[in-house]
Design a protein around this nucleic acid. Structure first.
Lengths: 200, 200
DNA sequence: GTCTATACACTGATAGAC
DNA sequence: GTCTATCAGTGTATAGAC
Protein backbone atom coordinates (compact mmCIF):
# COMPACT_ATOMS: atom_id res chain seq x y z
CA UNK A 1 0.00 0.00 0.00
CA UNK A 2 2.49 2.63 1.03
CA UNK A 3 5.58 3.05 -1.13
CA UNK A 4 8.58 1.11 0.07
CA UNK A 5 6.54 0.35 3.17
CA UNK A 6 7.88 3.14 5.29
CA UNK A 7 6.25 6.32 4.09
CA UNK A 8 3.79 7.96 6.41
CA UNK A 9 0.53 9.20 5.02
CA UNK A 10 0.70 12.71 6.38
CA UNK A 11 4.16 13.80 5.27
CA UNK A 12 5.80 12.88 1.99
CA UNK A 13 9.33 11.53 2.23
CA UNK A 14 10.86 13.80 -0.35
CA UNK A 15 10.12 16.34 -3.00
CA UNK A 16 10.73 13.75 -5.69
CA UNK A 17 8.01 11.56 -4.28
CA UNK A 18 5.63 14.50 -4.39
CA UNK A 19 6.50 15.08 -8.02
CA UNK A 20 5.82 11.45 -8.82
CA UNK A 21 2.51 11.27 -7.01
CA UNK A 22 1.44 14.59 -8.52
CA UNK A 23 2.20 13.46 -12.05
CA UNK A 24 0.70 10.05 -11.47
CA UNK A 25 -2.45 11.64 -10.07
CA UNK A 26 -3.10 13.66 -13.21
CA UNK A 27 -2.32 10.77 -15.55
CA UNK A 28 -4.40 8.18 -13.69
CA UNK A 29 -7.26 10.68 -13.40
CA UNK A 30 -7.23 11.27 -17.14
CA UNK A 31 -6.54 7.78 -18.50
CA UNK A 32 -7.70 5.42 -15.78
CA UNK A 33 -5.66 2.54 -14.43
CA UNK A 34 -5.19 0.66 -17.68
CA UNK A 35 -4.79 3.67 -19.92
CA UNK A 36 -2.12 5.24 -17.75
CA UNK A 37 1.40 4.10 -18.55
CA UNK A 38 4.55 4.47 -16.53
CA UNK A 39 6.07 6.30 -19.47
CA UNK A 40 3.29 8.92 -19.44
CA UNK A 41 3.63 9.31 -15.70
CA UNK A 42 7.39 9.76 -15.98
CA UNK A 43 6.90 12.40 -18.67
CA UNK A 44 4.31 14.21 -16.54
CA UNK A 45 6.75 14.41 -13.66
CA UNK A 46 9.71 15.42 -15.80
CA UNK A 47 11.78 12.73 -14.13
CA UNK A 48 13.19 9.57 -15.63
CA UNK A 49 11.27 6.40 -16.24
CA UNK A 50 13.10 4.01 -13.95
CA UNK A 51 13.04 6.35 -10.98
CA UNK A 52 9.42 5.65 -10.22
CA UNK A 53 10.36 2.07 -9.44
CA UNK A 54 12.71 3.34 -6.80
CA UNK A 55 9.69 4.69 -4.92
CA UNK A 56 6.98 2.25 -5.88
CA UNK A 57 7.36 -1.37 -6.75
CA UNK A 58 4.66 -1.45 -9.41
CA UNK A 59 2.12 0.61 -11.30
CA UNK A 60 -0.62 -1.00 -9.26
CA UNK A 61 1.02 0.17 -6.06
CA UNK A 62 1.13 3.78 -7.27
CA UNK A 63 -2.55 3.65 -8.13
CA UNK A 64 -3.59 2.09 -4.84
CA UNK A 65 -1.52 4.66 -2.98
CA UNK A 66 -3.35 7.50 -4.73
CA UNK A 67 -6.78 5.97 -4.24
CA UNK A 68 -6.09 5.63 -0.54
CA UNK A 69 -5.04 9.25 -0.45
CA UNK A 70 -8.31 10.21 -2.14
CA UNK A 71 -10.28 8.06 0.29
CA UNK A 72 -8.63 9.73 3.25
CA UNK A 73 -9.29 13.22 1.91
CA UNK A 74 -12.91 12.35 1.25
CA UNK A 75 -13.46 10.86 4.67
CA UNK A 76 -11.85 13.89 6.24
CA UNK A 77 -14.35 16.19 4.55
CA UNK A 78 -17.31 14.17 5.74
CA UNK A 79 -16.00 13.87 9.28
CA UNK A 80 -15.18 17.54 9.60
CA UNK A 81 -18.51 18.72 8.18
CA UNK A 82 -20.78 16.33 10.03
CA UNK A 83 -20.20 17.50 13.58
CA UNK A 84 -23.41 15.83 14.78
CA UNK A 85 -23.76 18.14 17.73
CA UNK A 86 -26.01 20.86 16.33
CA UNK A 87 -28.73 21.26 13.72
CA UNK A 88 -28.47 18.29 11.34
CA UNK A 89 -29.46 20.46 8.39
CA UNK A 90 -26.63 22.81 9.21
CA UNK A 91 -24.25 19.86 9.00
CA UNK A 92 -25.60 18.84 5.62
CA UNK A 93 -25.34 22.42 4.43
CA UNK A 94 -21.69 22.65 5.48
CA UNK A 95 -20.91 19.31 3.87
CA UNK A 96 -22.55 20.24 0.59
CA UNK A 97 -20.87 23.62 0.49
CA UNK A 98 -17.46 22.08 1.13
CA UNK A 99 -17.96 19.39 -1.48
CA UNK A 100 -19.12 21.75 -4.20
CA UNK A 101 -16.87 24.69 -3.50
CA UNK A 102 -13.67 22.98 -2.42
CA UNK A 103 -13.61 19.35 -3.47
CA UNK A 104 -14.99 19.81 -6.94
CA UNK A 105 -12.80 22.74 -7.91
CA UNK A 106 -9.16 23.20 -8.77
CA UNK A 107 -6.79 20.29 -8.34
CA UNK A 108 -8.96 18.75 -5.65
CA UNK A 109 -11.27 17.38 -8.30
CA UNK A 110 -8.47 15.09 -9.42
CA UNK A 111 -9.01 13.03 -6.30
CA UNK A 112 -12.63 12.55 -7.28
CA UNK A 113 -11.54 11.53 -10.75
CA UNK A 114 -9.16 8.99 -9.27
CA UNK A 115 -12.03 7.59 -7.22
CA UNK A 116 -14.16 7.52 -10.33
CA UNK A 117 -11.55 5.57 -12.25
CA UNK A 118 -11.08 3.21 -9.35
CA UNK A 119 -14.81 2.57 -9.18
CA UNK A 120 -15.15 2.17 -12.93
CA UNK A 121 -12.15 -0.10 -13.47
CA UNK A 122 -10.93 -1.28 -10.12
CA UNK A 123 -12.96 -4.47 -10.08
CA UNK A 124 -9.87 -6.54 -10.69
CA UNK A 125 -7.73 -4.95 -8.02
CA UNK A 126 -9.08 -6.74 -4.94
CA UNK A 127 -7.03 -4.79 -2.43
CA UNK A 128 -8.54 -1.61 -3.81
CA UNK A 129 -12.11 -2.77 -3.53
CA UNK A 130 -11.62 -3.62 0.13
CA UNK A 131 -10.41 -0.15 1.01
CA UNK A 132 -13.14 1.54 -0.96
CA UNK A 133 -15.85 -0.58 0.60
CA UNK A 134 -14.53 0.02 4.10
CA UNK A 135 -14.33 3.78 3.66
CA UNK A 136 -17.70 4.00 1.90
CA UNK A 137 -19.28 2.20 4.80
CA UNK A 138 -17.78 4.62 7.31
CA UNK A 139 -19.09 7.58 5.33
CA UNK A 140 -22.51 5.97 5.05
CA UNK A 141 -22.72 5.36 8.79
CA UNK A 142 -21.72 8.92 9.52
CA UNK A 143 -24.38 10.28 7.19
CA UNK A 144 -27.18 8.02 8.34
CA UNK A 145 -27.23 9.56 11.79
CA UNK A 146 -27.48 13.06 10.40
CA UNK A 147 -30.12 12.17 7.81
CA UNK A 148 -32.31 10.32 10.30
CA UNK A 149 -32.00 13.18 12.77
CA UNK A 150 -32.86 15.58 9.95
CA UNK A 151 -35.98 13.60 9.16
CA UNK A 152 -36.96 13.61 12.83
CA UNK A 153 -36.87 17.41 12.96
CA UNK A 154 -38.72 17.65 9.66
CA UNK A 155 -35.90 19.16 7.61
CA UNK A 156 -34.99 16.14 5.50
CA UNK A 157 -37.44 14.61 3.04
CA UNK A 158 -39.12 11.29 3.85
CA UNK A 159 -37.75 8.07 2.44
CA UNK A 160 -35.27 5.28 3.04
CA UNK A 161 -32.14 6.95 4.49
CA UNK A 162 -29.86 4.55 2.61
CA UNK A 163 -31.58 5.45 -0.64
CA UNK A 164 -31.32 9.17 0.13
CA UNK A 165 -27.62 8.94 0.90
CA UNK A 166 -26.99 6.84 -2.19
CA UNK A 167 -28.75 9.52 -4.24
CA UNK A 168 -26.66 12.23 -2.62
CA UNK A 169 -23.34 10.48 -3.15
CA UNK A 170 -24.32 9.48 -6.67
CA UNK A 171 -24.90 13.08 -7.61
CA UNK A 172 -21.49 14.10 -6.35
CA UNK A 173 -19.74 11.40 -8.32
CA UNK A 174 -21.82 12.30 -11.34
CA UNK A 175 -20.94 15.97 -11.02
CA UNK A 176 -17.26 15.07 -10.81
CA UNK A 177 -17.70 13.10 -14.02
CA UNK A 178 -19.32 16.07 -15.74
CA UNK A 179 -16.56 18.40 -14.65
CA UNK A 180 -14.16 15.94 -16.16
CA UNK A 181 -15.35 17.04 -19.55
CA UNK A 182 -16.45 20.58 -19.13
CA UNK A 183 -14.75 22.73 -16.53
CA UNK A 184 -17.29 25.51 -16.95
CA UNK A 185 -20.14 23.64 -15.32
CA UNK A 186 -19.10 24.16 -11.69
CA UNK A 187 -19.74 27.87 -11.84
CA UNK A 188 -23.51 27.47 -12.09
CA UNK A 189 -23.83 24.55 -9.70
CA UNK A 190 -24.16 25.62 -6.10
CA UNK A 191 -24.55 23.47 -3.01
CA UNK A 192 -28.26 24.24 -3.04
CA UNK A 193 -28.77 21.88 -5.98
CA UNK A 194 -27.04 19.12 -4.08
CA UNK A 195 -29.21 19.82 -1.04
CA UNK A 196 -32.34 19.54 -3.18
CA UNK A 197 -31.84 15.79 -2.98
CA UNK A 198 -32.44 15.81 0.77
CA UNK A 199 -34.59 18.90 1.26
CA UNK A 200 -38.15 18.47 2.46
CA UNK B 1 -18.33 4.46 -37.24
CA UNK B 2 -20.49 1.57 -38.39
CA UNK B 3 -18.74 -1.73 -38.97
CA UNK B 4 -17.64 -2.24 -42.56
CA UNK B 5 -19.64 0.87 -43.36
CA UNK B 6 -22.77 -0.88 -44.45
CA UNK B 7 -24.48 -2.15 -41.35
CA UNK B 8 -27.74 -0.47 -40.46
CA UNK B 9 -28.35 0.54 -36.90
CA UNK B 10 -31.72 -1.10 -36.46
CA UNK B 11 -31.00 -4.63 -37.64
CA UNK B 12 -27.76 -6.48 -37.12
CA UNK B 13 -26.24 -8.08 -40.17
CA UNK B 14 -25.77 -11.51 -38.68
CA UNK B 15 -25.91 -13.47 -35.50
CA UNK B 16 -22.13 -13.44 -35.32
CA UNK B 17 -22.09 -9.67 -35.25
CA UNK B 18 -24.53 -9.72 -32.37
CA UNK B 19 -22.28 -12.11 -30.48
CA UNK B 20 -19.32 -9.83 -31.05
CA UNK B 21 -21.08 -6.64 -29.98
CA UNK B 22 -22.57 -8.41 -26.98
CA UNK B 23 -19.23 -9.69 -25.79
CA UNK B 24 -17.52 -6.40 -26.54
CA UNK B 25 -20.20 -4.52 -24.61
CA UNK B 26 -19.61 -6.48 -21.42
CA UNK B 27 -15.81 -6.29 -21.70
CA UNK B 28 -15.68 -2.56 -22.49
CA UNK B 29 -18.20 -1.87 -19.72
CA UNK B 30 -16.04 -3.71 -17.22
CA UNK B 31 -12.53 -2.70 -18.27
CA UNK B 32 -12.95 0.56 -20.12
CA UNK B 33 -11.45 1.31 -23.51
CA UNK B 34 -7.79 0.81 -22.58
CA UNK B 35 -8.31 -2.13 -20.25
CA UNK B 36 -10.38 -4.09 -22.75
CA UNK B 37 -8.34 -6.25 -25.10
CA UNK B 38 -9.37 -7.90 -28.31
CA UNK B 39 -8.36 -11.21 -26.79
CA UNK B 40 -10.74 -10.75 -23.86
CA UNK B 41 -13.53 -9.73 -26.22
CA UNK B 42 -12.93 -12.78 -28.41
CA UNK B 43 -13.04 -15.02 -25.35
CA UNK B 44 -16.26 -13.39 -24.17
CA UNK B 45 -17.91 -14.13 -27.51
CA UNK B 46 -16.57 -17.67 -27.76
CA UNK B 47 -15.42 -16.93 -31.29
CA UNK B 48 -11.91 -16.69 -32.63
CA UNK B 49 -9.63 -13.73 -32.27
CA UNK B 50 -9.18 -12.71 -35.89
CA UNK B 51 -12.86 -12.87 -36.69
CA UNK B 52 -13.60 -9.58 -34.99
CA UNK B 53 -11.44 -7.86 -37.59
CA UNK B 54 -13.69 -9.22 -40.28
CA UNK B 55 -16.52 -7.12 -38.83
CA UNK B 56 -14.66 -4.15 -37.40
CA UNK B 57 -11.44 -2.66 -38.61
CA UNK B 58 -10.09 -1.71 -35.20
CA UNK B 59 -10.72 -1.85 -31.48
CA UNK B 60 -11.54 1.84 -31.52
CA UNK B 61 -14.23 1.24 -34.10
CA UNK B 62 -15.91 -1.40 -31.96
CA UNK B 63 -15.93 0.96 -29.00
CA UNK B 64 -17.30 3.90 -30.95
CA UNK B 65 -19.98 1.68 -32.43
CA UNK B 66 -21.13 0.64 -28.96
CA UNK B 67 -21.04 4.16 -27.57
CA UNK B 68 -23.19 5.34 -30.44
CA UNK B 69 -25.60 2.52 -29.73
CA UNK B 70 -25.75 3.63 -26.10
CA UNK B 71 -26.29 7.24 -27.13
CA UNK B 72 -29.16 6.29 -29.40
CA UNK B 73 -30.83 4.17 -26.72
CA UNK B 74 -30.47 6.99 -24.20
CA UNK B 75 -31.87 9.60 -26.54
CA UNK B 76 -34.77 7.33 -27.39
CA UNK B 77 -35.72 7.08 -23.72
CA UNK B 78 -35.70 10.85 -23.28
CA UNK B 79 -37.63 11.49 -26.45
CA UNK B 80 -40.29 8.90 -25.73
CA UNK B 81 -40.81 10.01 -22.14
CA UNK B 82 -40.83 13.75 -22.70
CA UNK B 83 -43.94 14.07 -24.82
CA UNK B 84 -44.22 17.79 -24.03
CA UNK B 85 -47.94 17.86 -24.71
CA UNK B 86 -49.35 17.32 -21.23
CA UNK B 87 -48.41 17.95 -17.62
CA UNK B 88 -44.64 18.56 -17.50
CA UNK B 89 -44.37 16.81 -14.15
CA UNK B 90 -46.02 13.76 -15.65
CA UNK B 91 -43.31 13.74 -18.31
CA UNK B 92 -40.57 13.93 -15.71
CA UNK B 93 -42.23 11.18 -13.72
CA UNK B 94 -42.38 8.90 -16.74
CA UNK B 95 -38.78 9.65 -17.62
CA UNK B 96 -37.52 8.96 -14.11
CA UNK B 97 -39.51 5.74 -13.84
CA UNK B 98 -38.17 4.48 -17.16
CA UNK B 99 -34.59 5.37 -16.29
CA UNK B 100 -34.65 3.72 -12.86
CA UNK B 101 -36.75 0.69 -13.66
CA UNK B 102 -35.63 -0.14 -17.18
CA UNK B 103 -32.34 1.53 -18.03
CA UNK B 104 -30.56 0.86 -14.77
CA UNK B 105 -31.55 -2.80 -14.47
CA UNK B 106 -30.55 -6.00 -16.22
CA UNK B 107 -28.32 -5.80 -19.26
CA UNK B 108 -29.50 -2.28 -20.07
CA UNK B 109 -27.21 -0.92 -17.42
CA UNK B 110 -24.25 -2.02 -19.54
CA UNK B 111 -25.04 0.81 -21.93
CA UNK B 112 -24.74 3.28 -19.08
CA UNK B 113 -21.45 1.71 -18.09
CA UNK B 114 -20.19 2.09 -21.64
CA UNK B 115 -21.18 5.76 -21.54
CA UNK B 116 -19.42 6.09 -18.21
CA UNK B 117 -16.23 4.60 -19.59
CA UNK B 118 -16.46 6.81 -22.64
CA UNK B 119 -16.86 9.90 -20.46
CA UNK B 120 -14.09 8.88 -18.10
CA UNK B 121 -11.53 7.87 -20.72
CA UNK B 122 -12.75 9.03 -24.07
CA UNK B 123 -10.93 12.35 -23.98
CA UNK B 124 -8.44 11.09 -26.53
CA UNK B 125 -10.94 9.71 -29.00
CA UNK B 126 -12.06 12.93 -30.73
CA UNK B 127 -14.74 11.33 -32.87
CA UNK B 128 -16.33 10.00 -29.72
CA UNK B 129 -16.41 13.32 -27.93
CA UNK B 130 -18.21 14.94 -30.85
CA UNK B 131 -21.03 12.41 -30.83
CA UNK B 132 -21.40 12.56 -27.07
CA UNK B 133 -21.52 16.35 -27.04
CA UNK B 134 -24.06 16.46 -29.85
CA UNK B 135 -26.37 13.95 -28.19
CA UNK B 136 -26.00 15.50 -24.76
CA UNK B 137 -27.01 18.83 -26.17
CA UNK B 138 -30.13 17.37 -27.75
CA UNK B 139 -31.11 15.77 -24.46
CA UNK B 140 -30.47 19.02 -22.62
CA UNK B 141 -32.63 21.03 -25.01
CA UNK B 142 -35.44 18.53 -24.73
CA UNK B 143 -35.34 18.69 -20.95
CA UNK B 144 -35.09 22.44 -20.66
CA UNK B 145 -38.52 22.96 -22.14
CA UNK B 146 -40.11 20.55 -19.69
CA UNK B 147 -38.24 21.90 -16.67
CA UNK B 148 -39.07 25.52 -17.45
CA UNK B 149 -42.70 24.61 -18.02
CA UNK B 150 -42.66 22.69 -14.75
CA UNK B 151 -41.33 25.74 -12.95
CA UNK B 152 -44.04 27.90 -14.55
CA UNK B 153 -46.80 25.68 -13.17
CA UNK B 154 -45.09 25.51 -9.78
CA UNK B 155 -44.20 21.82 -9.82
CA UNK B 156 -40.45 22.11 -10.35
CA UNK B 157 -38.20 23.75 -7.79
CA UNK B 158 -36.74 27.19 -8.48
CA UNK B 159 -33.23 27.53 -9.84
CA UNK B 160 -31.16 27.64 -12.99
CA UNK B 161 -32.71 25.04 -15.35
CA UNK B 162 -29.29 24.08 -16.69
CA UNK B 163 -28.06 23.48 -13.15
CA UNK B 164 -31.15 21.44 -12.32
CA UNK B 165 -30.78 19.26 -15.39
CA UNK B 166 -27.06 18.80 -14.76
CA UNK B 167 -27.91 17.67 -11.23
CA UNK B 168 -30.51 15.25 -12.56
CA UNK B 169 -28.25 13.72 -15.19
CA UNK B 170 -25.35 13.58 -12.76
CA UNK B 171 -27.37 11.52 -10.35
CA UNK B 172 -28.27 9.02 -13.04
CA UNK B 173 -24.67 8.55 -14.09
CA UNK B 174 -23.67 8.31 -10.45
CA UNK B 175 -26.31 5.67 -9.78
CA UNK B 176 -25.08 3.68 -12.76
CA UNK B 177 -21.59 3.84 -11.29
CA UNK B 178 -22.84 2.59 -7.93
CA UNK B 179 -24.67 -0.28 -9.54
CA UNK B 180 -21.44 -1.17 -11.23
CA UNK B 181 -20.15 -2.30 -7.89
CA UNK B 182 -23.16 -3.42 -5.97
CA UNK B 183 -26.10 -4.89 -7.86
CA UNK B 184 -28.31 -4.85 -4.77
CA UNK B 185 -28.66 -1.09 -4.61
CA UNK B 186 -31.26 -0.70 -7.35
CA UNK B 187 -33.92 -2.48 -5.32
CA UNK B 188 -34.21 0.33 -2.77
CA UNK B 189 -33.82 3.22 -5.21
CA UNK B 190 -37.11 4.28 -6.76
CA UNK B 191 -37.76 7.03 -9.25
CA UNK B 192 -39.03 9.20 -6.40
CA UNK B 193 -35.47 9.77 -5.20
CA UNK B 194 -34.47 10.92 -8.65
CA UNK B 195 -37.45 13.25 -8.77
CA UNK B 196 -36.42 14.80 -5.44
CA UNK B 197 -33.79 16.69 -7.42
CA UNK B 198 -36.50 18.60 -9.29
CA UNK B 199 -39.44 18.51 -6.92
CA UNK B 200 -40.66 21.74 -5.43
C1' DG C 1 19.23 8.92 -5.81
C1' DT C 2 18.92 9.32 -10.63
C1' DC C 3 19.66 7.87 -15.10
C1' DT C 4 19.86 4.76 -19.59
C1' DA C 5 19.54 0.31 -21.63
C1' DT C 6 17.30 -3.84 -22.02
C1' DA C 7 14.68 -8.26 -21.10
C1' DC C 8 10.42 -10.22 -21.77
C1' DA C 9 5.39 -10.52 -22.13
C1' DC C 10 1.38 -8.69 -24.18
C1' DT C 11 -1.41 -6.09 -27.57
C1' DG C 12 -3.38 -4.57 -31.93
C1' DA C 13 -3.56 -5.74 -36.43
C1' DT C 14 -2.59 -8.64 -40.65
C1' DA C 15 -1.80 -12.79 -43.60
C1' DG C 16 -3.18 -16.68 -45.31
C1' DA C 17 -5.08 -21.63 -44.86
C1' DC C 18 -9.46 -23.89 -44.91
C1' DG D 1 -16.99 -16.72 -42.98
C1' DT D 2 -14.02 -18.62 -39.64
C1' DC D 3 -9.80 -20.04 -37.98
C1' DT D 4 -4.52 -20.15 -36.55
C1' DA D 5 -0.03 -18.17 -36.98
C1' DT D 6 2.72 -14.32 -36.98
C1' DC D 7 4.71 -9.39 -37.06
C1' DA D 8 5.69 -5.05 -35.34
C1' DG D 9 5.05 -2.04 -31.61
C1' DT D 10 4.26 -1.05 -26.78
C1' DG D 11 4.14 -2.00 -21.80
C1' DT D 12 5.94 -3.39 -17.23
C1' DA D 13 9.66 -4.24 -14.70
C1' DT D 14 14.69 -4.89 -13.89
C1' DA D 15 19.83 -4.29 -14.26
C1' DG D 16 23.48 -1.76 -13.79
C1' DA D 17 26.32 2.62 -14.70
C1' DC D 18 27.13 7.01 -12.55
Amino acid sequence: MSPRGKVLNDTMRSETLQKITGGALSIFAEYGFYGATMKKIAEATGLSYGLIYHYFKSKEEVFIYLVNLALMKTREIFEKSLTQDGDPWEDLNTLSKTLIEESLTGDSVLFFHIMLQALAQGKHLPELKEHIDKNSQLIFEKMIHVVVKGQAVGKVVEGNPIALITSYLSMIQGLALYMFQDGSIPSIITHEYLLNVLRK
